[in-house]
């Protein structure tokens, strides 16, 4: 358009007296862009179009997650071994405090299995929530350099945390029979419980990633919230045994993080028979949170990384 001509918009310091081609009006610019088949930037796509765009980046999600998961334990000598050692050490210290000193084993027949499942399952949610809240602000280098649907980030962070926790789940499957639990076909439901839990984590990651991007300060509250949840979600004590069967107990028992542990225990422990209530609740939480989460996240698209 303007090659060969000079277009002086404002002659603050530039030499005056230049040929000045008429500036395009917004309507002319829009018509020109349409005629050339250009795409408008900074405009949020429709929800369906967005979902399709995210799907087209699934390879990016996978490579980003697997690379990050592998890098998690690379910066020390024992490397990937820590993925197994960390949860084992945690089980040891929790057993010491809650099993031997405080004796919160009430209502459980196999406390070590109960505690181990609680720690490993909750540990996955805790790390996914904390990492998920920083999904956008923590990868600002990527956000500032490349254009892709930002929903890729919370999804990949959740998947990363799942992959990081796979060794812990493997340890869990070895420990459960060692604690004296009899083999059961119900164990096959454990991966299903993990799928529901992952959907719950993903939904929370969508919500928190947008909130933290908009208000950085809130990132400081996430670890506090997770710690609080660790103490009320029944990681190391049985909720019905200590909270009774009233409304409070039901709320504590059916909040998403507690329900993830209940389904895992029902799948793996003889003491807890499968109940429809917890599995339906887990599935409902998973679907509801991840669907509302992506809608919430999508509504902020275009503002990620802009401050």
């Amino acid at each position: 358009m303007t090659i060969g001509h000079s277009n002086v918009v404002e002659d603050v310091e530039a030499p005056a007296a230049r040929t000045e081609p008429a500036r395009l009006t917004p309507e002319e610019a829009a018509a020109l862009a349409r005629g050339a088949g250009l795409e408008e930037l900074g405009v949020r796509p429709g929800l369906l179009g967005y979902a399709r765009e995210v799907w087209s980046y699934r390879h990016l999600v996978w490579h980003l997650s697997s690379a990050q998961a592998w890098a998690t334990n690379q910066n020390n000598y024992l490397g990937q071994l820590w993925a197994v050692l960390n949860p084992l050490l945690l089980v040891g210290s929790y057993y010491l405090i809650f099993g031997l000193l405080l004796k919160t084993r009430g209502g459980t027949s196999n406390y070590i299995a109960f505690l181990t499942i609680g720690i490993f399952v909750f540990g996955y949610s805790a790390s996914a929530i904390i990492a998920g809240s920083r999904a956008v602000v923590g990868q600002i280098g990527l956000v500032r350099a490349l254009r892709f649907p930002r929903a890729v980030l919370p999804i990949s962070v959740t998947l990363t945390q799942f992959l990081v926790n796979v060794p812990a789940f493997a340890v869990l499957m070895v420990m459960i029979p060692l604690t004296g639990e009899p083999f059961s076909p119900h164990w096959l439901l454990f991966p299903v419980a993990l799928v529901f839990q992952s959907l719950i984590n993903l939904g929370l990651a969508f919500f928190l990633a947008r909130v933290v991007n908009a208000a950085r300060d809130s990132a400081n509250l996430v670890p506090v919230g997770v710690r609080l949840a660790r103490y009320v979600s029944g990681v190391f004590f049985s909720i019905p045994h200590y909270a009774g069967h009233g409304l409070l107990s039901a709320v504590l028992l059916y909040q998403p993080l507690a329900v993830s542990m209940t389904t895992a225990r029902e799948a793996l422990m003889d003491q807890y028979p499968l109940t429809w209530g917890s599995w339906v609740a887990a599935a409902a939480w998973g679907v509801a949170l991840s669907v509302t989460g992506i809608v919430f996240f999508w509504r902020g698209e275009g503002r990620y990384g802009s401050s």
Binding site: P26, A29, A30, A33, A36, G37, L38, E39, E40, L41, G42, A67, Q68, A71, Q74, N75, Q139, G141, L142, V143, R144, A145, L146, R147, G302, R303, G305, S306
Partner: peptide
Amino acid sequence: GLMPPTNGRVWASGRPSLLGVNAVLLTGL
């Protein structure tokens, strides 16, 4: 397309690629 316009509009063809001062994408990888 990395920063939404406050006013006005921008159109572009295809996918732009920006190389910034800080060239690293993911430092730990």
